[in-house]
């Protein structure tokens, strides 16, 4: 009887939990990256379908991977991209994949990798602590600076096969991202336009995003002009490094720094309302990729 009563109590408790759960959710053991890694490593060794995002076998691995990242994001109140950059995101998957190799890197190297991931964890915690005070562009800037210890450990201490596996994890994340623009502030290309036209277009689009009135829009224009001139200089720098067959990209960090500077000027000089200020802080566009052609 006691065993029967215990079973009844267990079922009652299970039923209560089921009924309390929001519709459309079920209990499920969290997918472990170790399990996912065991499927990814042979897939990358086969070197065929795993590179195809549209392959349903790839998607069958991407779905659970995104689910884990998404749960982390929801738990921490951050975006998917941020979760991926954290110590439990792509870095954790990469290390799990290296551990699943045959043979894996030796124990000393695995220890170094875990130490580097722990370092990333500290950096990420500091980031989370100040995240609320940062605009979205400032958040991107901070995230770009994370994880140098880990990439150093990968570049310097690992056999080629293991460092390849690390980058495979990164590529897998690239395939998994729901859309490119979730990963990085966008650029708005303006090929073949005059400089003045480019600045007018950007003034219009920034004004719309922030919700500026006509007077504020007038005050915005010189800020856009200044930003565009600085971006044009970055284009010149990139041109110097380019070859006929390869267009050297603009420096991402420089580009973001310029846009952050512009947003600070907007906040200081255009008398924004609370709602406009919020829209400005949410702005994440970094235009200027093709400004080279605007003269």
């Amino acid at each position: 009887m006691p065993a029967l009563q215990a079973e009844i109590a267990k079922l009652e408790s299970e039923l209560a939990a089921l009924k309390a759960r929001p519709a459309g959710t079920v209990d499920r053991k969290r997918l472990s990256f170790a399990d996912l890694a065991k499927r990814l490593v042979p897939a990358f060794a086969e070197d065929t379908w795993i590179w195809e995002t549209d392959d349903e076998r790839t998607q069958a691995l991407i779905g659970p991977f995104l689910e884990v990242l998404r749960e982390q994001a929801l738990e921490k109140g951050i975006t998917l991209y941020e979760a991926a950059q954290g110590p439990d995101g792509v870095a954790a998957l990469a290390i799990a994949m290296m551990a699943a190799m045959d043979p894996p890197p030796d124990a000393e190297r695995m220890k170094k990798l875990e130490e580097a991931r722990a370092e990333l964890g500290k950096e990420f915690d500091s980031y989370l602590a100040k995240r609320g005070s940062l605009s979205r562009l400032e958040q991107y800037r901070e995230l770009l600076g994370l994880g140098s210890a880990l990439s150093n450990a990968v570049d310097q201490d690992l056999p080629e096969a293991a460092s390849d596996m690390y980058w495979n994890a990164d590529n897998f994340w690239d395939s998994a991202k729901p859309a490119e623009y979730l990963s990085f502030p966008g650029t708005s290309a303006a090929p073949g336009q005059t400089f003045d036209k480019v600045c007018s277009t950007w003034t219009d689009s920034w004004s719309a995003t922030i919700g500026l009135d006509p007077a504020q829009k007038l005050a915005l224009r010189p800020i856009v002009d200044e930003y565009a001139r600085a971006i044009a200089e970055l284009n010149v720098e990139a041109d110097k490094k380019s070859t006929p067959s390869y267009r050297y990209p603009l420096n991402r960090k420089d580009q973001i720094a310029l846009m952050i500077k512009a947003t600070h000027r907007i906040a200081a000089e255009t008398s924004l309302t609370e709602a406009q200020l919020k829209a400005l802080r949410d702005m994440s566009v970094v235009p200027g990729h093709d400004l080279k052609s605007a003269r």
Binding site: L4, I8, L15, L18, R21, P22, G24, V26, G63, E67
Partner: peptide, 27 residues
């Protein structure tokens, strides 16, 4: 009572089986 509970648990799980098939914990 045990049998009734088992049936009820199974029924509630069945109503949530769509999500169970995909193993999705996010609504």
């Amino acid at each position: 009572r045990l049998e009734r509970l088992r049936a009820e648990v199974a029924s509630v799980k069945a109503s949530q089986s769509g999500s169970a098939a995909a193993g999705n914990r996010i609504p």
